[in-house]
Design a protein around this nucleic acid. Structure first.
Ligand code: FES
Ligand code: FES
Lengths: 155, 155
DNA sequence: TTGAAATGGTACTAATTTAGTTCTATTATT
DNA sequence: AATAATAGAACTAAATTAGTACCATTTCAA
């Protein structure tokens, strides 16, 4: 399975398309452009609207408009709105409920938590703005609260 | 769904346990210790053996022994052996096959590829050794081929 | 005022993947 | 000979994801 669900992927296409069309667009248009099932995409757009990414307008010339700034939309946000918050393992859910049978002697608990944080940092840091224009990358220097100096091998 | 499958999670427990038991251990012991279904765990251990992580010994006092160094086992390796290689979206598989209908005008293709690389870098960089002892972290400075200087907020 | 095109909301079904089981064979020890 | 282990393959069940369907409501325009 993929890391991002199709809903997630389609949502990014929707948000990208709407960013390029400030006057808005309908589910019909977007599903046609990207060859995505219309009812499925419509459901996703309902959800995005519900979570405050889009405003909607009904009727013959209705549709959706992007109302949040791309730089304020992190991948982690979309993920949480559409599917569920990111977590590394089943156990990381269990740990909060303290039901994991291994929790008191788990040899990988701390280490995994570090990996979890590193991936989550990326998801919280990368925004729609960066997806649309990867040359921006405001994120990398914030990623660990560290200063970065290029070595030159990094083109 | 979780980022790591249960197979992946259990495999890490197995590898960790075997690292702490250089004389080896059986599926029965490990399944009992962590309260994991024995036949399921046995399948996972067969796979790990098959992929060269473990050596096996049949018979009454048989079992498995870890034969690869923890610092040579990256998360990405285990993932590939047990499930499939990491990929961000369904589309990233399609792109290789060039079947994605949006591939020629996709607004997120380049940006997503960047995110893909950043996550994959973590998975290739974090090893079992780091999972077992998170204070090691040889990885972070290699992560982007960059020099890192702490700001002080990073404890 | 009627019809078409849009969203709103909910429930349902189908497809796929993951998780787990079962069975039989083989090997090694006691 | 009995027992405890791995080897390998096939199978089943549970859960998740992907996608449909239905009906209601709103808006616009002919
Ligand atoms: S597997 Fe649950 S705490 Fe580690
Ligand atoms: S969704 Fe396939 S190339 Fe972007």
């Amino acid at each position: 399975m993929s890391f991002f669900s199709r809903k997630m992927d389609y949502a990014l296409l929707v948000l990208s398309h709407l960013h390029g069309n400030p006057d808005g667009s309908s589910a019909r248009e977007i599903s046609a452009k990207f060859s995505i099932s219309r009812p499925f995409l419509a459901n996703i757009m309902k959800t995005l609207c519900h979570h405050g990414y889009l405003s909607s307008h009904r009727g013959v010339h209705g549709g959706y408009v992007l109302i949040r700034k791309p730089e304020d939309i992190a991948l982690a946000d979309i993920m949480q709105s559409l599917d569920e918050p990111f977590h590394l393992t089943d156990c990381s859910k269990d740990i909060e409920k303290q039901t994991c049978s291994a929790r008191n002697f788990c040899p990988i608990r701390t280490g995994m938590s570090g990996v979890h944080d590193r991936i989550r940092t990326i998801l919280k840091d990368v925004t729609l703005a960066e997806i649309l224009d990867p040359t921006i990358r405001p994120s990398i220097s914030r990623q660990f609260g560290l200063e970065l100096v290029s070595h030159g091998t990094h083109k």
